[in-house]
Amino acid sequence: MAAKVEFEDNDGRVVRYVRHVNGGGLVAPGARVHDGASVAPTAYVEAGARLGDRSRIGEGSWLESEVIVGDDVVIDRNVHLGPRTRVHDGARIGAGARIGSDVVVGRGARLPADAIVPNGTVVRRTGRAGRADFGIAA
């Protein structure tokens, strides 16, 4: 697998990525991914995004610009995290979830597979196993 990958986007710009040492996922310049994190080979981490220690990004997932993911987070396959979203430590996001821009996923929150979370939503952890409370940010 090549250590660096280049693509031409829809606007004709060349976009360059490097493969993360743990998992081989594609990381844009300006993104910070902890060496202890795992990024699947077909996952993307865009510029300005940060990924914490022991966090895992699944196949086909995409972290847009300025997304911050804490430690011990699991983001399953084919998940999209919109710009400026924050995912706090210990959160879990199920396969196929679509998370909008400026969303906050609280510490230890769980989002089910195929969840759709609108822009600006705050997702809190609840006491019920496997459930999350979607509150709209004030």
Results as ranks from 00 to 15, higher is better:
M1I: 13
M1H: 15
A3F: 13
K4E: 12
K4Q: 13
V5F: 14
V5E: 10
E6W: 15
E6P: 11
D11Q: 08
G12I: 05
V14Y: 12
V15A: 05
Y17G: 02
Y17E: 04
H20S: 05
G23H: 00
V27K: 00
A28V: 05
A28N: 06
P29V: 08
G30Q: 10
A31M: 01
V33S: 00
V33R: 00
D35V: 14
S38W: 09
V39S: 04
V39A: 05
V39F: 04
A40F: 11
P41C: 14
T42A: 07
Y44M: 15
V45G: 00
V45F: 01
E46H: 09
A47K: 00
A47R: 00
R50D: 01
R50S: 12
R50N: 03
R50Y: 03
R54W: 11
R54I: 10
S55P: 04
I57E: 03
G58T: 11
S61Y: 01
W62V: 14
S65P: 12
V67D: 00
D71Y: 14
V73I: 15
V74S: 11
N78A: 12
V79Q: 03
H80M: 11
H80A: 09
L81Q: 08
T85S: 10
T85D: 05
H88L: 14
H88E: 11
A91K: 01
A91Y: 02
R92T: 14
I93R: 01
G94Y: 03
G96A: 06
A97R: 02
R98D: 12
R98P: 06
R98Q: 09
I99M: 09
V104T: 08
V104H: 10
R107N: 10
A109P: 02
L111Y: 02
I116H: 15
V117S: 06
N119R: 10
G120A: 05
V122F: 13
R124E: 11
G127P: 06
R128L: 15
G130Q: 07
R131F: 08
A132V: 09
F134N: 09
G135A: 15
G135C: 10
I136W: 14
A137Y: 10
